[in-house]
Design a protein around this nucleic acid. Structure first.
Lengths: 347, 347
DNA sequence: GTAAACAATGAACACGTTTTCATTTTCCGT
DNA sequence: ACGGAAAATGAAAACGTGTTCATTGTTTAC
């Protein structure tokens, strides 16, 4: 009781460990950094004492001198939207294995918030930043985050199979090629004699959405099919639900729906079945984008264009590590393919 | 070109801002800390220059001296499980408004990982830690995180309406009282003449699951109903799907299912409809726990025991702020009620 | 057996901020 | 105009670590 010095027990410091192990403070620092030279038995002793004292190096202090915070900022519009949450989950695990931690930031729908958010985030000094958000340009990101090089997820438009060069402020890029998956999907639909395809969109100005719609248009044109009728959505279940109803109120003889994402496809399916009294896939076929975990649920059992989540996360982590190994390297790139997963909503 | 000093442009520092604004470095620090005394026009000038130089204070350096990292650690088993992702989303937004950032950590299924994970997390020096994970005791958490006081989410068992006292290492607590919601649910079922209730469980040893099952048992006993038949699940769709099928293979005349969470209820509903050829709610009624966003989707339209997410997040943020205002205060408590949301799976 | 290479070591410095503390300036009431 | 209180200010100390550099102890090669 009386021996405990102050009320709030200070956290153990390298100094205390050094004193207790009869070594210098520098030795303690070295014990925790693998690539330094230190007598093995000495290192073992220090680590043992450290554990007794419940000591680990303070990352704030470490960041201050080494310039590495080991924090990776992730900017999302909605953590709880399905694809994002699954990607954050996998990314957090992978980063943790490499000694990093995920720092989460949410954008407002209010666009004006963004500059302030970026400045706010920069204060935490992340080593890298990944933006899942559509309304912030990578060059803006790079300009504001003067130390971290941001990673931009680029959904290739038609004809962009060879990714365009990066100019202006430096950023790295994950290029997502959607052509293969869309081609497989359209081929499958055409094989079933589909003639009139509708596209239930995502957020109108979103690059992922624009790229998907453009790619769909091109593939349809290449195969001599009519361009899609567009139902305006925003990647959400509710908007897709409403958009689908509107599509059939107009009555243009749509016999297949391409949704901008899986959740939108769920909304379309439920509207078809529960509101319009149509059968899926007999009356109308439905295809989504993403292949989220829910897509195999029996109520939907969705045929969808798949992004390999694990491969995507590995590519992101590779980008981060390569960038940290060489902070001045020119823009780094990784590329990802897509493919179709066939389930029960086409057939 | 030749005027830029080094290759990698150093990030702006308080020193540079001070020099450029013709003030002392201390003044710059004060300009960014609201509660300090500084001539208004001087503060304005400094902030203007800071913006020109793209400067914000380095939080690592700030944390080092102030002892506040403005980081809140969140430990989750699965970011992508629905309730967790929605809570993380709301929490991140709320914390951001208060000047904090969310630091995400994932546990392994492997239990032995946890001690290492906690030590790992402590290195980042979070101001507070919230554990959504079931297999780590709050006292362990408190012992390892010698500075931050962890927040523990306690699901009250029957008879725990007055929360039990905290002993041992200090931790704060959010008490979730589930009695009201379960009572409303059972009353509703009984009103429809239900006689044989099954409980599709969550992870067996999880405290949320144990509390829910115990509460259900007590309420059923109080109303003179038979105890529930238990189908073993793990909070996942797939396990609940399989457990539901097994329940009806045995054929004990179950006419209502209580699932440990909404996703489990979805699995039960799909098994009933698509595998067993039963109607919901005509043949079997289903009730879940959580009220996640998907519960109103037409395919499920689930009646469920609701946790008010926003209120829950506000309570968590209150706990964090109160604890930071008084780090030595005795264990803080907040309490949350539940209630039933009636939709289409009972009727 | 010697020189040279190499591993191990600790003192001093650097990182960018906030926080005392003592000093100077401004403000207010009379 | 004056005294005192309050606000404004800057120098110096602290926070806990990694890194550089010069020094000492130890092995290797001929």
């Amino acid at each position: 009781m009386s021996e405990s010095g102050s009320l709030a027990p200070r956290r153990a410091t390298a100094e205390m460990v050094a004193r207790r192990a009869n070594v210098s403070r520098v030795a303690v620092s070295r014990a925790f950094n693998p690539h330094t030279s230190l007598k093995p038995e000495k290192r073992a002793l220090i680590l043992k004492v450290a554990q007794e004292l419940n000591y680990t190096p303070d990352r704030a202090a470490r960041a201050l001198v080494s310039g590495r915070s080991h924090l990776v900022g992730v900017i999302v519009p909605d953590v709880c939207s399905h694809w994002e949450s699954q990607e954050i989950d996998a990314l957090t695990t992978a980063l943790q294995d490499e000694g990093f931690a995920t720092l989460l930031f949410k954008t407002r729908t209010d666009y004006s918030m963004d500059e302030r958010l970026l400045a706010y985030m920069r204060g935490f000094n992340p080593d890298s930043v990944i933006a899942f958000v559509e309304n912030v340009k990578p060059t803006t990101l790079a300009r504001v985050l003067d130390r971290a090089v941001p990673i931009y997820i680029h959904y290739a438009r038609p004809g962009e199979e060879a990714p365009p060069p990066v100019d202006g402020p430096l950023f790295d890029r994950l290029n997502v090629l959607q052509r293969t998956g869309v081609e497989q999907a359209v081929a499958l639909l055409q094989g079933y004699g589909v003639e009139r395809i509708a596209y239930v969109s995502g957020v109108a100005k979103s690059r992922a959405n624009l790229a998907r719609e453009a790619m769909l248009r091109e593939v349809l044109a290449d195969r001599g099919m009519a361009p899609p009728i567009v139902g305006p959505g925003d990647f959400s279940y509710d908007k897709a639900y409403a958009a689908t109803i509107d599509l059939f109120r107009i009555g243009k003889g749509v016999d297949a729906i391409f949704a901008a994402n899986d959740v939108g496809a769920f909304g379309a399916i439920d509207a078809l079945r529960h509101e319009l009294g149509l059968r899926v896939p007999e009356d109308v076929k439905v295809i989504g984008f993403d292949d989220i975990a829910q897509s195999h649920w029996k109520s939907y059992n969705l045929t969808t264009v798949k992004f390999d989540l694990n491969e995507r996360v590995r590519a992101l982590v590779r980008l981060i590590l390569r960038r940290l190994a060489d902070p001045t390297a020119p823009s780094l790139q990784e590329t990802l393919q897509t493919s179709l997963v066939v389930r029960g909503t086409v057939g």
